[in-house]
Design a protein around this nucleic acid. Structure first.
Length: 130
RNA sequence: AGUCCGGUUUGGGCAAUUGCUGUCAUAAAAUGGCAGAGGAAAGUCCGAACUUCCCAGAACAGGGUGCCGGGUAAUACCCGGGGACCGGAGGAGCAAUCCUUCGGUUACGGAAAGUGCCACAGAAAAAAUACCGUUCCUCAUUUAUGAGGAAUAAGGGUGAAAAGGCAGGGUAAGAGCCUACCGCAGUAAUGGUAACAUUACUGGCACGGUAAACCCCACCCGAAGCAAGAUCAAAUAUGGAAGUUUUUUCCAUAAAGGAAACAAAGGUGUUCUGCUUUGUUAAACUUCCGGGUAGAUCGCUGGAUUCUGGUGGCAACAUCAGAACAAGAUAAAUAAUUGCCGCCUGCCUUAGGCGGGUUACAAAAUUCGGCUUACAGAACCGAACUGCUU
RNA sequence: UGCCCCGUGGUGUAAUUGGCAACACGUCUGACUCUGGAUCAGAAAAGUUUAGGUUCGAGCCCUAACGGGGCAG
């Protein structure tokens, strides 16, 4: 596995896994309330799977695509701690990132520096809580 | 030179690092090379290709289109022309208005095939039943009024719309009743492929509006849509066939057997009950066939393709030659950061220096041809107006 | 991605082939009551999602846009 890579094997693609996460998983919010994360932990099969989901109500297609790319970029550059935690405890982690108090009306142009701290904060909360 | 309107084109560039999708190279892992979002990708308003269903044809129903000619695979699209309307300029005229030219808009077939509707107001809303008024006749009397009869659509008022306009003649008063001009309708000639235009003659007018009301006429249309559809195929439901093993619901038993239930067949179009005949009864396992969910592969990008040039055509477009392959994902790639140039902008201001911004509308989802809508800035073209100069 | 449907006071619904936008609940004011509720009387609140067109006249007919909702293997 590459240090800063993000291949398709590390992403969630099945509809069933999404349903599982949203019904049984737990939710945490970032310090500035911009991003939230739904995640689920299972014993065995060490590894982390990731996805970003943006609702149609938050903005138009261009805005949604941009937010998903920024979330993916922030995760890709800062995923190291989460992967090490997973390998150490032998847990399979599945995470979905969603915008909480972000929409196109208030933030027409968003950039990487606004998203990255929130994502890092969420991941440190997940590892620290266990 | 500026303002405003309309139209066309364009929709920042180069490089580095990290990462994603596709593809090519090496036997594979991995590494490297190459490529990677728009003019609207949008809305889904039209038209096609393609696929499945149905397929022998015809008719009806339903839907669509609607001045004429051309273009196209096809269209509600495009090009050219005609009519009508709007705006500007110029000219003619006392004026109404008309003519010329430039630009724009136009769902623009039929109201003498038929039906419906036209609220309120008004006498009357379509075969004019005459409200006020005008005129004549008769009768009555208070002698200028009343009653009755007749003629009259010129005038009044109502309305969105009132039965050709205007002038002269005519008349009891009036009226296309007659005449000139204009409008309208018909016929003919000329020009034009045609829509239509022009001219001449005839008719005195007969024909209010509405078809984005029903309808009539002409032409066109089978339905659904890539989540179409094709192939492979875990699972699950347990459908069918074959085989093997253990074993039999009740009664009776030495054995044969009997009963019950279920299934099939028989006579009827169907159902139920009964009858007759035949067969079977429970469980497990294996194999084959069928079925087709999760998932995978195909459909999936080389095509009514793009660019350049020639030829034909007023043009849309057609055709010929040469060159080029230009995204193909599926919880869904095309991104992040940085530097330089370009552009916009603030301050200090001679050059120049310092700082900020990097953009509008918006992102492929089977593929094309249009239409419609959104759009910062830039470039070009056309028309009008204003100012200055000649 | 494709297909289909709907927009009327604050809310839920009407409006017969085009002719004054109606009703209920809610809101406000007054009366009744010591006060509130209930009851009675009265009032305000839309111009029909938006923009064009047809018509003498559009909630209704036509075209485009905007918003909301539903269906599918």
């Amino acid at each position: 596995m590459k240090r800063f890579g993000l291949s398709s094997a590390e992403r969630i693609k099945s509809k069933k896994i999404f349903e599982k996460i949203f019904t049984y998983g737990s939710t945490i919010f970032s310090y500035d309330q911009k991003i939230k994360a739904n995640y689920i932990l299972e014993a065995g099969n060490a590894g982390v799977k990731f996805a970003a989901a943006v609702s149609k109500k938050n903005g138009n297609a261009v805005w949604r695509n941009r937010l998903k790319r920024l979330l993916r970029e922030a995760y890709r550059l800062n995923k190291q701690t989460l992967v090490e935690f997973s390998l150490k405890k032998d847990l399979s982690i599945k995470v979905v990132f969603l915008p909480h108090r972000l929409n196109q009306k208030d933030n027409k142009k968003i950039c990487y520096d606004e998203i990255a701290p929130a994502v890092v904060d969420l991941m440190s909360k997940m590892t620290g809580a266990k």
